[in-house]
Design a protein around this nucleic acid. Structure first.
Length: 274
DNA sequence: CAGAGCTCCTGAATGC
DNA sequence: TGCATTCAGGAGCTCT
């Protein structure tokens, strides 16, 4: 599933092919995605790409005729390929570029979204987003300020977009494990000290992942980038029943906020002893 | 306002 | 072998 690092990697990967190019046409084969694809997209003929940016997991393509705002959902991919490449199943959108290439959006589960706005900042969806996890605004103090008065489980808080964006299920699980914090712990029981550990850990995990995203980057230049998402070294995510890498206790799983969560009951006790 | 639950969709995994 | 069922998963929206 494209997490923030994947989106960032995608952005960096396609940017060189798009910048200063004209979008000749936009072909929408399947408009029914998470939201109906914005018909305004089709008016972008001959729009020139000025640059790309990212906000949370949204990818923004700035043109002289407005901003295209895309989200890869959980199974979406964007690839630049030759404009003669035949469309495959689930290839929902093509942006035809004037260098005989296309930017193709492929998304089996259709959880993605493609919006348009004169200025991306005006989209309500983007305005409601919390801080970027890699920016300095996401600090221990910031997290503590928002956690101390909420009862929701820490893990849900970390995945709560109005507070901090881009921390997906995998990263929330892994970061909490690395900090020895139980994912079900009510947020208001987090101490400032916990936050001082957690925040840098989240940043570290995300940065590491972006670095590894270089691997993904290579694949996605290959037109048949059928390589799935590269597996990264995970400690607990998806490892129910396996031994904890630290203490060998069996990893347990628990559904929190409809999301599967993994943790070591010994390294991440719910009740803080001592 | 906080927070729980619902919903979109399809492929993979599991069950018979 | 094949059909039917179950589940995962990002995030906005609705309801309490």
């Amino acid at each position: 599933m494209p997490e923030l690092p994947e989106v960032e990697t995608t952005k960096r990967g396609i940017e060189p092919y798009l910048i200063n190019q004209q979008i000749k046409a936009v072909v929408v084969r399947q408009p029914k995605l998470r939201f109906m694809v914005n018909p305004e997209l089709k008016k972008l003929n001959n729009a020139r790409v000025l640059g790309l940016s990212r906000r949370a997991k949204y990818l923004i393509i700035h043109t002289n005729k407005g901003d295209i705002v895309g989200h890869l959902g959980m199974s979406g991919t964007l690839q630049v390929m030759d404009d003669k490449t035949p469309a495959q199943k689930h290839d929902h959108i093509d942006f035809l570029i004037d260098n005989h290439k296309i930017l193709r959006y492929h998304d089996p589960r259709r959880f993605g979204a493609w919006l348009w706005a004169e200025h991306a900042e005006d989209l309500p969806i983007l305005q409601k987003l919390g801080v970027e996890p890699l920016e300095k605004e996401f600090s221990a103090e910031y997290l503590f300020n928002h956690s101390c008065k909420r009862k929701m489980p820490v893990k849900s808080l970390l995945m709560h977009n109005p507070i901090v964006v881009g921390v997906g299920n995998i990263y929330a699980n892994e970061s909490l494990f690395l900090c020895g914090i139980n994912p079900a712990l009510p947020a208001n029981l987090l101490t400032l000290t916990d936050c001082e550990k957690l925040v840098p850990t989240i940043k570290k995990v995300l940065k590491q992942s972006i670095k590894q995203g270089g691997t993904t980057l290579k694949d996605f230049k290959q037109p048949d980038g059928k390589l799935g998402y590269f597996v990264q070294k995970l400690h607990v995510y998806g490892k129910k029943g396996e031994p904890c890498p630290k203490c060998k206790t069996q990893i347990e799983s628990l559904v929190i906020g409809q999301r599967n969560s993994f943790f070591c009951p010994k390294c991440q006790p719910l009740l803080k002893s001592k």
